[in-house]
Design a protein around this nucleic acid. Structure first.
Length: 583
RNA sequence: GGAGCGGUAGCUCAGCUGGUUAGAGUGCCUGCCUGUCACGCAGGACGUCGCGGGUUCAAAUCCCGUCCGCUCCGCCA
């Protein structure tokens, strides 16, 4: 049915008779001569149909997106008629036989349009996916998973599937629930990750496991968050964290080099969680941006300006400065926009000092005085032409406000030092305190602390874990940890988290039991495949690298899922719906 | 749960402070056209202005509610 792909035809094929299959990307009917751009998965080639062709009458009925099969001869294009936009632009095919394999209604949008709204694209996703850009993204994604599988297999990891119909977990995200017909009133949960199963596989002696697997979390969506997403999930036994990180790093470096020819550097730098927050305000620092936050608490403790001196003298607060190179040209109007921007993170204002040619200029100079002002300039390393922004509030508000402002400014003013930057974040705390004083796991409840159980009990609020995150260009693309492999430690951690013995036994007693039958030390990692591919393709949303993604309300515009089901089905599942039916 | 932006022809959009018959480009249909490649030219058809209510002599336009899409906060171990 096909001898060549359209996109691969070139001067080498001149005089050959070829048979192509594909979609009509565009038809240009000149009355006397008809041109068809035929598109297949490799690209586009132009077909010419002359009026003396017996199939000319067929060609006249052809419309965009018809599926055709054409036999013809490849000829060179005459002088000046080549199309440099097409890979096949130096040749064209003179049609001999034209076969309409299928017709098409007029499509709701031209396939190669670039301005179609996402809503329409999602509704007709099967058409959107015909677009060359989407085809390329899906192909790159496939290359990524192929590379991953090859790497893991080469390193003797075993691909083992774990159940989707499993048990709800305490802590963490909301679960997607599946009612059980055979156990009326009981529910399965879709896994938020195969975490416990992969740990059990270590206890089963497989030593190295991986899986490219869907995970499910019923939480609100973002540009980089979908309710079902894909992870490269990995677990190993008998490896220290530095060994695991080195191996994962090798994979990621190879991935970027092989697939998009990007060199991420010989060894990814490492930063502690505490330093990341202090210097960049976030736990996923974008290292493409050289700007750092400067702590100026000491300097501000005695100034006669309560907005600064208050937080400077408070333990849970912080005063920090962010010097923006060349930022003195930022307009008052733009500063107002940034003030509004930081307010979404709870910042009550955004003080600044501009370093103009004539000297520092700022509404707050009179409160700070010359001496303090010059010390700020010294500490931040600010130069003439720069602007210094300030944050003074609770520490997490300052960090989030200035940390996100830093990234926004880098975007607006193009302050990137390099196009790519990977970094490991380590030394996460084990726990964070909730509003009510209780503790939650920062990573998850099975993460090993870096101290023994007795020390952990005494220093729960400050103890560090053996977790590590991989951050590329300010996006967390993977996280992992060494897990707890001793029952006593696991019980200590669960107790600190306020999970009772009964609840622990009920929710994951199987894991606690397994820990007591010769559990090897183990640890692992999980990569967010969608985010990785998003970054590698330069997309702003993971929806752009997922064939059939969901909208912000977790609906599918293509299938109209989720949808109601007949009462009979619900009865079988022992499920009652209490809402009034929507229309 | 909250904030912001958007929803007008198949598609992308314009439509100011309310005022006759709601427009443009593109797509579609018809005719013409032998070298285009976003072909061109001429003509034509196509509207639940997201939905519901209100104000008004009069609403795409103003007000209230609601649904949908996007970005973000909360949330996401």
């Amino acid at each position: 049915m096909r001898s060549n792909y359209c996109g691969e035809l070139n001067k080498k094929h001149i005089n050959q008779t070829v048979e192509i299959c594909g979609w009509v990307n565009r038809r240009r009917d000149h009355g006397g001569v008809i041109f068809l751009d035929i598109r297949d998965k490799r690209g586009i080639a132009q077909v010419v149909i002359n009026p003396d062709n017996a199939d000319f009458v067929i060609a006249e009925t052809i419309r965009n997106e018809f599926v055709v099969n054409i036999t013809g001869q490849v000829i060179p294009r005459a002088e000046g008629l080549a199309n440099p936009k097409l890979a096949s632009g130096e040749i064209e095919i003179v049609a001999k036989n034209i076969n309409i394999l299928n017709t098409s209604k007029p499509v709701p949008f031209q396939i190669d349009a670039t301005d179609t709204s996402e809503e329409i694209r999602l509704k007709y996703r099967y058409l959107d996916l015909r677009n060359d850009v989407m085809q390329k993204r899906m192909r790159l994604r496939s290359k990524v998973t192929h590379f991953m599988r090859e790497f893991m297999e080469k390193h003797d990891f075993l691909d083992i599937e774990t159940p989707f119909l499993t048990k709800a977990t305490p802590e963490g995200a909301r679960d997607y629930l599946i009612p059980s017909r055979t156990h009326p009133g009981d529910f399965f949960a879709l896994p938020q990750s195969p975490q416990l199963f992969k740990q059990l596989l270590m206890m089963s002696g497989f030593e190295r496991y991986y899986q490219i697997v869907k995970c499910f979390r019923d939480e609100d969506l973002r540009a980089d968050r979908q309710p079902e997403f894909t992870q490269l999930d990995i677990e190993t036994s008998f490896m220290h964290e530095d060994e695991i990180m080195a191996m994962m790093e090798e994979m990621v470096r190879g991935l970027f080099k092989d697939i998009i020819n990007v060199d991420l550097g010989d060894q990814f730098p490492t930063i502690t969680y505490a330093n990341a927050l202090s210097l960049y305000g976030v736990d996923r620092p974008d290292m493409r941006i050289p700007m750092q936050l400067t702590s100026i608490d000491e300097l501000m403790q005695s100034v006669d300006f309560k907005v600064f001196s208050g937080p400077a003298n408070s333990d849970d607060s912080r005063v920090a400065a962010l010097c923006v190179p060349g930022g003195a040209t930022i307009s008052r109007k733009q500063i107002d926009k940034y003030t509004k921007y930081v307010s979404i993170y709870g910042a009550k204002g955004l003080a600044y000092i501009k370093l103009n040619e004539e000297g520092p200029a700022s509404p707050i100079l009179k409160f700070l005085g010359d001496e303090v002002t010059s010390k700020i300039i010294e500490l931040t390393g600010a130069k003439t032409g720069d602007i210094i922004f300030f944050g003074a509030d609770k520490t997490n508000i300052v960090n989030e406000a200035l940390g996100n402002l830093r990234e926004q400014l880098a975007k607006d003013l193009n302050l990137y030092e390099s196009p790519w930057a990977a970094i490991w974040v380590v030394d996460f705390p084990m726990f964070e305190a909730n509003d009510d004083g209780s503790l939650s796991a920062i990573h998850h409840p099975f993460t090993a602390p870096s101290v023994d159980a007795d020390t952990l009990k005494d220093t729960a609020k400050t103890a560090l874990s053996r977790a590590y995150d991989l951050v590329i260009n300010g996006s967390e693309v993977g996280d992992g940890s060494i897990r707890i492999h001793q029952i006593s430690m696991q019980k200590t951690v669960l107790k600190l988290l306020g999970i009772s013995d009964e609840e622990a036994q009920d929710k994951f007693g199987f894991l606690l039991d397994a820990l007591e039958y010769g559990c090897p030390p183990h640890g692992g990692m999980a990569f967010g495949l969608d985010r990785l591919v998003m970054i590698m393709t330069g997309c702003d949303s993971i929806r752009d690298v997922i064939a059939f993604p969901k909208t912000q309300t977790a609906a599918c515009l293509l299938t109209n899922a989720p949808a109601s089901v007949p009462r009979k089905v619900l009865r079988e599942l022992s499920v009652q719906v209490s809402l009034a039916k929507k229309d």
